[in-house]
Simulated assay, not measured.
Amino acid sequence: MKMLKIKSFIVATLFIFSLSLQAQNTLKDWQAFSENNEPVSLAEQTYKEKTCVKLDGKKEAIVINKAKNYQNFRIEFDVASQVMAGVGFHVKNEQNYQFLYFRPGYGGTQEAIQYIPIYNGGLSWVLYHYPIYEAKTDIKSLEWFHATIEVRNKILKVFVNHKKEADLTLTLLDTDTESGNILLRSMFGDSYFANVYIQEIPKTITDWSISEQLPRDKSYDYSDVKKMKTWTKINDKRDEMVNLKRYFEYPNGTVFTKKTVSSDADKPHLLYFDFTGKLQIFLNGKEVFNYAKYKLDRLDNYENCIVLDFKKGENELVFIIEGDAFVFGKGFNSMGRFQHQNWGFVASLVEKNR
């Protein structure tokens, strides 16, 4: 069993970009365009002691990375802007994407940060506004500040100057694309971008097949899973936690969950996960994890990580999971009945970089 305890936000597929012209091997994936959508070249420069690139909103309006599509990601950068600078993501083309931008001239007001969807080129800022789509933060025109934008399972979070609490949190509006390229954009004046880093966040697995509920006062192994004839498919995309209590009227047992994962070759993957109670994990019939938590902790998407050696073709991933009832002895009293209060898990899967 290969297991790694994750103590901080570590993503297996760390993808780092530099907007420095000294790093041609990474800059080659970025292309700049004018406001007339004409390809242009960017020149590296220094602004207030930071090496950066400048977008003036006209001759150099956007810079886009077309090498990779992102669904869930975290981007960090330093920015100094005269009027308006931001990040476009889930980019389908130059006329359709999601857009998060900053107005440094309105720092300290509810218009400092704004999110809008760009449909067919429309900058619909009057349609999406405070208190949901705009937020306050302390930024100033043409002064450097640090921005972090995180998108995970339709949730957008924006952090300014390394705050622990997000300045803006919202649920993204539905568009016709769930993933796409990333671009940087300036409008109505100069913007400077430096130290741009993008991390891909593994997609949370929400589509599973679950068994009927079984008694929790016995041990189970993979042979019991193979005997199960009835399976129910679940896929609650809006909830990254697989909350098993929602599927059973009296949640107090053990459940098997399974998922088939296809691999185009023999290759290792990383499974990030956390859970309540007791959990066994099997890959293609072999046990790869077995642990019981004897206390209650808040779940963390990246608390645990194991390496799964996938074979070419279809691979069967199975969880056998019990909730927290055993922590309380016979269960926690829920209005006259003893049961699980917390019963579920969260899991993400990503190909391992060799």
Rank of each mutant, 00 (worst) to 15 (best):
E316T: 14
L173I: 13
Y220K: 11
V126Q: 11
F338G: 01
K226R: 13
K226H: 12
A67M: 03
T230H: 12
F193N: 06
R74N: 06
F319Q: 06
V307N: 05
G313V: 08
A347R: 07
K229A: 13
P104N: 10
V327R: 05
S191K: 01
Y106Q: 14
W208C: 07
D236E: 12
G108I: 10
L14T: 14
E49R: 01
A325K: 05
R74K: 15
K54P: 00
S263P: 15
S179H: 06
Y272H: 13
I201G: 01
F282E: 05
N120W: 01
D300R: 15
E178M: 12
G189D: 07
W343T: 00
S41L: 10
T232I: 14
P39K: 03
E322Q: 13
G313Y: 14
F256K: 07
D78T: 09
I139R: 01
N69G: 03
L270G: 14
L172M: 12
A147G: 09
Q31S: 12
L100G: 07
V327L: 08
T46E: 08
G277W: 02
F332C: 02
T260F: 15
K286R: 15
D324P: 03
P251D: 12
K352H: 02
Y291V: 10
K233P: 03
Y97C: 08
R185G: 04
L100E: 11
Y247T: 12
W144F: 07
L184V: 08
N96D: 13
T26N: 00
V261P: 11
A347F: 02
N181P: 00
A147K: 00
L270K: 08
Y247E: 01
M3I: 15
N161D: 15
D221H: 12
G277S: 10
K7L: 14
R337G: 01
T276Y: 14
L184D: 05
M228D: 10
G121D: 02
P131K: 08
G57I: 01
Q199F: 04
A32W: 04
D239S: 00
A67E: 13
E143S: 07
A135W: 03
T171P: 06
G108Q: 09
H269Q: 10
T109V: 06
H162F: 03
L55C: 02
A194L: 02
C52L: 00
L42Q: 08
E111T: 11
H146E: 10
F282Q: 05
K50L: 09
V318G: 06
F338K: 11
I306M: 11
L349Y: 02
L55S: 02
N284W: 13
K154S: 08
Q341W: 01
G329S: 05
D297Y: 14
E287N: 14
H129M: 04
N65D: 14
D207K: 15
N96T: 13
W231N: 00
A67N: 07
V196T: 09
C305S: 13
Y272E: 11
K311G: 12
P268N: 13
N290M: 08
W343M: 00
N301I: 13
T204A: 10
I139Q: 04
T51M: 10
V91H: 07
D297L: 15
N195L: 05
D138R: 11
N243W: 01
K28L: 07
Y250P: 00
W144R: 06
P268R: 05
L349E: 04
D190V: 04
S334V: 06
H90C: 13
E178A: 08
D78A: 07
